[in-house]
Design a protein around this nucleic acid. Structure first.
Lengths: 339, 339
DNA sequence: CTGTTAGCGCATTCAC
DNA sequence: GTGAATGCGCTAACAG
């Protein structure tokens, strides 16, 4: 295959022993004379040491396994960008595996990566199950989760509950009493439970007339769009969506129904994707910094690999972005405002 | 590190030789009796063969290097999705490196991957330079480009020129005479030259009154938005944008300027991203199937690895998506329609 | 069918 | 400082 030079070849050419070449490649400890000679030969031949032979000796792969639920998502892209920013300068490379939104495959991927001899694993998880914990116990390579949390593992994630609370407080303060929360399956703890509960808690607090109806939808624009009529049936004054994607789908549905946003119904989302600003109206949202999440996650893993401790955290900074899709309601003008 | 069992350990435990275990792991050719014994021991120990030792022998890494201009982009996500769909069933894994939009880094990444001993490389290139070709000549591992083309390499890409032509014909047929093409640097041959030229050629054909002004902008939503006033200064009846992202930025600018699209100005893009449908109005565009590109690219590479030939192609199917952002013009109502 | 032997390319003792 | 020798864990002839 790669009909390449070996360390022996260049040793011969430089008229030294291969250990000398090896030293040149690693610590040093050789005379200037041989050093120059070797350098020259290496340059001429374009020699590069065999990755696998090296790793076999070194017991270190400099490879980090990265398990992702899917590839074609904005948040995943941002996350990777952040992870890469930390890994690359340290000489690590990411080995990416995709779970296709299946928890079972996520577990397969873990064991796969472990077998490949990666130095650590980052998992943007769909949900941490007993299966995960059991598998993780069976070997001792460092693992950091993101996206989901669990007391038994290391994790770095956004504050889903806090994000929900921010939105809940905002919508309440805007004078809304009756909202539909368009959320996802509670198989996804972070988004399906924490984020939703945060919203409900803050929205309900000291808010006697408050009412929240729940409509379950998927993560995609299309499924959100398809839930439009179900949402409308509750006649809310505002729709709070578990993700910006869902918000965009709802917005589209409303637009096609000729329902004015935010005049007739307000809409809000979570995520802060750049696309939120291209919709009409631009989507009010709680923004997450996934690139930062990626950086923190990678740094945590590197710490673990170095034998240091790492602190799990689920409190990464959030920012509220008020755009155009939510408007205020008169103190008591609820429900009657709409037919 | 991974204080793991070796093939020797399990050979001892099963009271056979390690070659027998190796056979068990690979082809077969052993008695049922020993087979059962080995299977049991492996199960008990959770043994897994050492990845690096195996690769060192096999001269095959089952690793495919993938070089991307950046991570956080929708097209890249789709592409990877497609690549992965082909690679995974064949037991290959992708090793992803990011070029941060720098051609020089793209070249470094190539040589990096080659050193790692990948079996092949896929490059979503920023532009194929002499540096690329020279480096590629220095080793013989299969490489397939996408995103850009060059006669001296293998490539699979969308038909940028054809896409441009489709849009050119459409806009002309809609009765527009004066358009601004909001494009990117011609350092990017595919988008900056081929796509633009295709548009201009088709638009100009048998179209005496036609006029195309060019405004150079970046790939981002923000830079497109910032180019808004420059575009408007030409007073076109339509703006054709080199990508949907640019189109979205222009749309946003126009929206904020209270200029009605498409009544006052039409806008179109290229790409067919899902987000095009959430803008207001929804963006008319030529859609590319990047997932298909990914699949074709990966398949081509696999063919090359298998010693087969592969045909480069730049004619992957396109689809025109007519949405709301372009409208017809009266035969001579040009320019005067706008102040 | 099975055990023995011999490397894959490299890092790292150990004497010199 | 430097070279010779050893083995990382595995696969692939080689004889039996």
């Amino acid at each position: 295959m790669d009909s390449k030079y070996t360390i022996q070849d260049i040793a011969d050419m430089a008229k030294v022993s291969k250990s000398t070449v090896s030293r040149y490649l690693n610590q040093g400890y050789i005379s200037q004379e041989k050093m120059d000679k070797i350098k020259q030969v290496i340059k001429e031949t374009g020699f590069q040491s065999n990755f696998f032979a090296k790793r076999l000796k070194m017991k270190q792969s400099k490879l980090i396994g990265i398990i992702l639920p899917r590839m074609d998502s904005v948040t995943v892209g941002k996350l990777l960008e952040g992870v890469n920013r930390i890994l690359e300068p340290e000489g690590y490379q990411g080995l990416i595996l995709v779970s296709d939104l299946k928890k079972q495959k996520e577990i397969c991927n873990i064991s796969n990566l472990q077998q490949q001899g990666v130095d650590g694993i980052i998992i943007d998880s769909l949900g941490i199950t007993r299966g995960h914990l059991q598998l993780l116990k069976s070997f001792d390579i460092p693992v950091v989760f993101t996206g989901q949390q669990h007391t038994a593992v290391h994790y770095v994630k956004i504050d889903d509950e806090g994000a929900g609370r921010i939105m809940g407080a905002y919508v309440r303060q805007k004078g809304h009493h009756h909202v539909v929360f368009a959320g996802v399956t509670n198989m996804d703890r972070a988004v399906g439970i924490e984020r939703k509960q945060g919203f409900i808690d803050a929205f309900m607090e000291n808010h006697p007339k408050a009412k929240v109806d729940f409509v379950k939808t998927g993560f995609s624009f299309e499924s959100a769009y398809a839930s439009g009529s179900e949402i409308l049936a509750f006649k809310p004054t505002a729709v709070v969506c578990a993700t910006d994607n869902i918000g965009l789908g709802v917005l589209r549905y409303l637009h096609e129904q000729k329902i004015k946003v935010p005049q007739e119904i307000s809409v809000a989302g979570f995520g802060g994707y750049a696309v939120g600003v291209v919709s009409y109206p631009a989507l009010t949202t709680v923004a997450f910094d996934y690139e930062l999440v990626g950086m923190k996650t990678a740094q945590g893993l590197l710490d673990l690999i170095a034998g240091k401790k790492m602190e799990s955290q689920s409190n990464l900074p959030l920012s509220f972005i008020e755009r155009e899709s939510v408007c205020g309601r008169q103190r008591d003008g609820v429900d009657k405002d709409r037919i």
